[in-house]
């Protein structure tokens, strides 16, 4: 495999929260290591509060990590500042979940799409700027005339196309897409996923694709990292996660996804517990309380990611 374009090592990000007068540290991301190769799509999947969004936001430094290292093409992202950080951010771009909240309602689509280019002075002149905006809108399947429109005039699917256009002008090396299709209806979701797969091929993008939806993740990703309570619990190629998941949490997650197959109907009550409080993390493995394989060791020692037979995928479990 080629040299990773983005390398995240032992990333830790926490937030301080106040509850009934006491300050707590909420460890949103607690020692995550990932690498993204050029041209690869790495999916991060997990349920709400697992830290997947914080990983994405830490990489572009929208939130400041407490520890660990992030390297983009070998350069230290966390140490960058000023123009070096701006250059880096031009190559590490984000697509957000809710395009209505992430597009400025008072700016035209064209201005929003060109914003990164304007700030970094990449356009030769006004005509060049207009041409590049038109090309980019066409590339995401919008008419060039959309440049003059405003977000409220667009449908949800069109807005998300505009959100993607904004992330590819000028073309970045890496896109970090945080739940980019979760707010869309299923028929529109398929259109936007197809667009992202096309762009990846055409522009040779690498992508960190963050979603709670294992179906979407399995569709678009080459490799998938499964997160639970701030840590990666399993990392494998997409097929390995979807068809042959190893970690007991991944298996529970896969089993809970409603399959469009009436022969696998729910017959009665299912009680599989809920995740523990973020502010009061258990000692040892965070999944222990819900895990069918739990042993005494799980309640004492945090399992590290390690290769598991037969395919040497990575999983963090003492009992595999």
């Amino acid at each position: 495999m080629s040299e990773p374009i983005l390398q995240v090592s032992d990333l830790k990000t926490s937030f301080s929260v106040k509850r009934s007068g006491r300050k707590y540290s909420l460890k949103a991301v607690d020692g995550v290591s990932l690498s993204l190769s050029a041209g690869e799509v790495l999916g991060i999947v997990g349920e709400s509060g697992c830290g997947k969004t914080t990983v994405g936001r830490s990489i572009v430094r929208l939130v400041q990590p407490d520890g660990g290292a992030i390297r983009f093409k070998g350069a230290d992202v966390l140490a960058a500042s000023g123009s070096a950080l701006r250059d880096m951010r031009l190559n590490l771009r984000m697509v957000f979940q809710d395009p209505y909240a992430s597009l400025n309602p008072r700016r035209s689509i064209g201005d929003s799409v060109a914003e990164a280019g304007d700030i970094n002075k990449v356009f030769k002149n006004r005509a060049d700027r207009a041409t590049r905006i038109a090309e980019t809108l066409t590339a995401v399947g919008l008419e060039p005339s959309f440049a003059a429109r405003y977000p409220h005039e667009l449908s949800g699917g069109q807005r998300q196309r505009a959100g993607i256009a904004r992330a590819i002008l000028p073309a970045p090396a890496v896109i970090i897409a945080d739940e980019p299709v979760s707010a869309l209806d299923v028929s529109v979701q398929a259109q936007v996923l197809n667009l992202m797969m096309d762009l990846r091929e055409r522009l040779g993008l690498s992508m960190l694709f963050i979603s709670h939806d294992i179906g979407v993740i399995g569709q678009i990703s080459d490799r998938v990292a499964v997160m639970y309570m701030g840590r990666v619990v399993e990392l494998s190629d997409a097929r390995g996660i979807v068809d042959r998941s190893a970690h007991p949490y991944t298996r529970a997650l896969m089993a809970a996804v409603p399959k469009p197959d009436p022969s696998q109907r729910i017959a009665g009550a299912i009680e599989t517990g809920e995740p523990p409080s973020q502010l009061n993390r258990p000692v040892g493995c965070a999944y222990a309380a819900r895990c069918p394989l739990v042993s005494d060791r799980c309640r004492v020692e945090v399992p590290e990611l390690r290769p598991i037979a037969p395919d040497n995928r990575l999983a963090a479990c003492h009992n595999l």
Partner: peptide, 14 residues
Amino acid sequence: DVTIQIQILGLLRD
């Protein structure tokens, strides 16, 4: 979340 969703669906069926 899906692991919670399936429990609510199971409860409704029950």
